[in-house]
Amino acid sequence: MSTDNNQIKSKEISEEKIIDFTNPIIEINNLSVKYGNSLAIENVTFSVPEKKVIALIGPSGCGKSTLIRCINRMNDLIPNAKVTGNVLFEDQNIYDNNVDATEIRYKIGMVFQKPNPFPKSIYDNVAFGPRVNGLNVNLDEVVENSLRKAALWDEVKDRLNDSGLDISGGQQQRLCIARTLAVNPEIILMDEPASALDPISTQSIENLIKEISKDVTIIIVTHNMQQAARISDYALVMMSGEERIGRLIEYGENKQVFDNPKDERTEAYVTGRIG
């Protein structure tokens, strides 16, 4: 968990709840989301260092998925969702009118809880993004490299024309990661990517996350505390009170959050006493 390239300026995490990184890849400021009249998350502010794994944890209904969906404008697809505040990526608020949401979603990819390969061949699943984007690349190379990065190549290299739906759940999830990697994203958002997988597949997804985080920033929502403790460099904790509005309550380095949380609500959550 080196912080060499992401020196922490402020240590006053408990008061500020913000870690101030020198060159964050994403900066989120006063982000609030409403679904109709109902406030889902309020005034969330934090920044994300480059090429690190950030675990987003908290009890069900605290707004983790809402928050992660804001980072690549997936909430645009939800009727009545209204986002205020800003999400700075490459020096621009991704919610500005001149920003193309589709382009953002290629740079900030997403992997969901349930593997969702297209009903196409393994090859075509991976080649989908570059083709749709009209990227002038050698597709064979992109497919092979992406599948290799997703630690799937050796298992599927002889069956690239088989349907993406004909492989195991764990392989399907890695295929979805390969599909996301094929368009060279800078960030990958993962919403409980291993929760539907068996322990072996979970292990390979975790290994994969650590491996690809050398090149890509990963923000992962997980309910599995041990998994969050194993794979993350930083952890961000959200919690909602009786009014059901999600707020960031703690953000810190993995060791701090999982060994000795500053906020007693974090302590209660990570030790399984609430949530």
Binding site: A229, D259, V270
Partner: peptide, 9 residues
């Protein structure tokens, strides 16, 4: 129990 934080300590 796979303890964490103060439980682990």
């Amino acid at each position: 129990e796979a303890p964490i934080a103060s439980d682990l300590r």
